[in-house]
Amino acid sequence: MASFGTQQPVAAAGQKKSIGPNDCNVPQAGTDGISSLNWSPTANFLISSNWDSGVRVWEAACNPQNTNQPVQVQPKAQVNHENSMPVLDTCFSADGSTVFSCGADKAVRMWRLGETPPNNIPQQIGAHDKPIQSVGFLSKSNLVVSGGWDAKLKFWDTRSPTPVGEFQLPERVYDLDVQGGLMVVATANRQVIIYDVSGPQPREHSRKESPLKYQSRCVSCFPDQTGFAIGSIEGRVGVQYIQKIPNKDHFAFKCHRQDSNVYSVNCLAFQNVYGTFATVGSDGVVTFWDKDNKQRLKAFPAIGQTIPCAAFNAQGNMFAYASSYNWSKGSQFYSPGSTPNEIYVHYTPEDEIKPKAAKKK
């Protein structure tokens, strides 16, 4: 995939904090690292999870005619996990009414928007034996799925504290993603497990090794459910199809690299309208890609701080991304005074994310 290229734009340290000059700086983004960002499927509500134990919700509004501030964001509410434990992931229910979260307290929790839970702690609906890395919602069966460092995948009916299903995995869960009837789980030791969740009972479809040589960091399903993209700590992304599709093959490409420095791909975010996607990395760079035409659409200047997570809203015209320490290097590299925790929302016009005509060979 040589047409993508590997070099990224560089900005001088301290000069840029956002990828766009008019990006909205989200208020009250938390006091510790930001671990996930997700948008409601039915409205422009943005949720984050943080290492400070918080789950926060904002409402965003987009007005492209206001070129000085096309996006405005207002804080709506916040809840916290117990014992000040880090929250590692969140997701919405299919109707956007409920937020699910998981984290180092080994609990899967549920929070109905508009309600204030007792002691401001969301209701626990499930548990693992070790911290829970990822949570997702299965719209076809109305089940919540959680993947933990106990190498287990559990499925929850919110009306019962006992899992309705459980799969033993080959290793710890590093990430999972659900899109319609497709779920993909990336574990330690470069294992990838694909599930069919289109019916009332999830079932395993297939297993494979990651096409990338080093540790998996993130995984994201295509909006059309025909495949998935996986990112790793080596600054590389693999694009994989579930079934053979004419004129489309698996491939991998390099990204988030500067000279001899290689940075982790921390998150992959697909845009629902066009099926294009963004990668964000520990180099502080956001890049938009077109997998079908194997093109880089837009590379933004580096912001000088790790970008741990990002997400497009359902309409595809707003892109949220976080800027914070992600704890990948441990506590010895964390400096509270010099490591801000910020979230920005970038208005995304079509010319940034819409596929361009394929280049003639």
Rank of each mutant, 00 (worst) to 15 (best):
P200R: 14
P200N: 14
Q201A: 10
Q201W: 10
Q201M: 13
Q201L: 13
Q201E: 14
Q201T: 15
Q201G: 08
P202T: 10
P202R: 11
P202A: 10
P202K: 09
R203K: 15
R203M: 12
R203L: 10
E204G: 03
E204R: 11
E204N: 06
E204Q: 13
E204T: 04
H205Q: 11
H205S: 08
H205E: 11
S206M: 08
S206V: 05
S206C: 07
S206K: 09
R207N: 01
R207F: 01
R207C: 00
R207A: 00
R207W: 02
K208L: 02
K208D: 07
K208I: 02
K208W: 02
K208F: 02
E209K: 09
E209V: 04
E209Q: 08
E209G: 05
E209H: 07
S210P: 00
S210V: 00
S210L: 01
P211N: 00
P211W: 01
P211S: 01
L212V: 02
L212F: 04
L212R: 06
K213D: 05
K213E: 09
K213Y: 05
K213N: 03
K213M: 03
Y214W: 14
Y214L: 11
Y214I: 08
Y214M: 10
Y214C: 06
Q215L: 05
Q215C: 02
Q215Y: 05
Q215T: 06
S216T: 03
S216L: 06
R217G: 03
R217M: 05
R217K: 10
R217W: 08
R217V: 00
R217Y: 08
R217E: 06
R217C: 04
C218G: 01
C218T: 02
V219S: 03
V219I: 11
V219G: 01
V219T: 06
S220T: 09
S220Y: 08
C221W: 09
C221F: 03
C221H: 07
C221I: 07
C221T: 03
F222L: 03
F222D: 04
F222P: 06
F222S: 04
P223R: 09
P223E: 10
P223N: 09
D224A: 04
D224S: 06
D224N: 11
D224L: 04
D224H: 08
Q225S: 13
Q225M: 15
Q225E: 15
Q225L: 08
Q225R: 13
Q225V: 09
Q225C: 12
Q225K: 14
Q225Y: 10
Q225N: 13
T226M: 14
T226R: 15
T226G: 11
T226D: 14
T226V: 12
T226Y: 12
T226L: 15
G227Y: 09
G227W: 13
G227V: 11
G227I: 11
G227S: 10
F228P: 13
F228L: 12
F228A: 06
F228S: 10
A229H: 12
A229C: 15
A229S: 15
A229P: 12
A229T: 12
A229G: 13
I230W: 12
I230R: 12
I230E: 15
I230S: 12
I230Y: 11
G231E: 14
G231C: 13
G231A: 13
G231H: 14
G231N: 14
G231W: 14
G231Q: 15
G231S: 12
